[in-house]
């Protein structure tokens, strides 16, 4: 799975489930939590999604606002485990 596919899967999940507006045009470098699009509870939901969808377990130390605020950050973190 390449970076682009992962990014699109996350984008679709976040706009559908967390922003609740599939029309929302979410940019790759947009602050999703700091921009008020989802709350920090949603980080845990993102963790579950990544486990179910990509079979990747993001450790708690990486599930933080600073490290998971944009699509770019999220996709890069998943790629890191898929590459191994």
């Amino acid at each position: 799975m390449d970076d682009k596919t992962i990014r699109e899967k996350i984008r679709a999940f976040i706009t559908r489930e967390l922003i609740r507006d599939e029309e929302y045009d979410l940019a790759d470098d947009e602050g999703i939590i700091t921009g008020g699009l989802m709350d920090s509870f949603s980080l845990a939901e993102f963790g579950v999604f990544v486990e179910d969808e990509f079979d990747v377990y993001i450790p708690d130390s990486d599930l933080t606002v600073a490290k998971m605020d944009t699509l770019n950050q999220m996709a890069a973190r998943i790629m890191q485990d898929l590459d191994v």
Binding site: R20, D21, T34, G36, M38, D39
Partner: peptide
């Protein structure tokens, strides 16, 4: 409209302890 939508969400999260689920 997208910019206003974003600005509303951001204003709420920065000025209160909650976030809007629907705008």
């Amino acid at each position: 409209r997208k910019a206003i939508n974003k600005a509303i969400r951001q204003a709420i999260v920065r000025q209160s302890t909650v976030s809007a689920s629907y705008v």
